[in-house]
């Protein structure tokens, strides 16, 4: 079984087959390795690499905010992981965090204070695009990646609900 998995801006091709006894033959971009893997609890995955000095990694995976997006929790850090983003986009199952198009959404209810970009603008990764006031603070919402602004869906002064799409970056 094969997957396309994006972590930290890099997409890797992963193929997985069961090797018995709780182990799996996993190939990442063509490089094979044996992984001894277990589910631990509702979210946990324990990985053990017998061929790599018996290294151990413990990761928790929970669903993210968009289809195909997972949040991986590793040693106090939280990292988004996108599973089969491009395939889901092709199949029409996902639109939000699919490859190519990214939506900047309101993480909580609030009021749009300023819109910092216009349709057609080029934006850099992490560039602020909208300022939303919520929880008594002004919060800059940033573009997740470099691209061009495809749509601006709000105006200054608008009240927004959590999850409302504010800007679409292509």
């Amino acid at each position: 079984m094969t997957f396309e998995i994006e972590v930290d801006g890099r997409t890797r091709h992963v193929s997985i087959e069961r090797a018995g006894g709780g182990t799996f033959r996993v190939s990442v971009d063509g490089a094979p390795t044996i992984v001894d893997a277990r589910r631990v609890g509702e979210f946990g995955v324990s990985l053990l690499f017998p061929g790599d000095a018996h290294a151990v990694t413990a990761i928790d995976l929970t669903p993210g905010s968009a289809p195909g997006e997972m949040l991986a929790h590793l040693a106090g850090r939280t990292v988004p992981v996108i599973v089969n983003g491009r395939r889901m986009a092709r199949g029409g199952a996902a639109t939000g965090s699919a490859h190519g198009e990214h939506r900047v959404t309101a993480p909580m209810p609030g009021r749009v204070v300023r819109v910092l970009v216009a349709r057609g603008d080029e934006v850099a990764a992490r560039q602020p695009v909208v300022v939303v006031e919520a929880m008594k603070m002004e919060n800059e919402l940033r573009s997740p990646r470099a691209g061009r602004v495809k749509e601006v869906e709000v105006v200054a002064g608008a009240s927004v609900e959590a999850g409302r799409v504010l800007v679409v970056i292509d």
Binding site: F3, I5, V7, R12, V14, I16, F24, V26, V28, T33, V35, A37, V45, L47, T57, I59, L61, M70, A72, L74, V79, V81, V83, N84
Partner: peptide
């Protein structure tokens, strides 16, 4: 490792 864990989860 995150890539592999997400793959196994799927």
């Amino acid at each position: 490792h995150l890539t592999i864990a997400a793959g196994l989860d799927a």
